[in-house]
């Protein structure tokens, strides 16, 4: 069930792009759309870390 969280990066980056496709406001010196992509990729790592943590916990409980 927790693996469903993995769909969030797809929604954030891809479905968010029509709204994020602009230059302003510049964030960290980058156009907003480029910042949006970088933020989405960092979000992917965070979510994968969370899913891995829960997976490990569930396996520990099973054993």
């Amino acid at each position: 069930m927790v693996k469903l969280l993995l769909i969030i990066p797809f929604i954030f980056i891809l479905a968010g792009m029509p709204f994020a496709n602009r230059i302003q406001p510049m964030v960290l010196g980058m156009p907003f759309n480029l910042f949006w992509v970088a933020a989405g990729i960092l979000l992917s790592t965070c979510i994968l870390g969370i899913v891995y943590h829960f997976d490990k916990q569930n396996k520990g409980e099973e054993q």
Partner: peptide, 20 residues
């Protein structure tokens, strides 16, 4: 221009699918 980001996005999201 900026459309080159498709390369990093498809690779990053492919890694997300690799988890399962």
């Amino acid at each position: 221009g900026i459309s080159a980001v498709y390369v990093m996005v498809y690779i990053a999201l492919s890694y997300v699918t690799s988890y399962f």
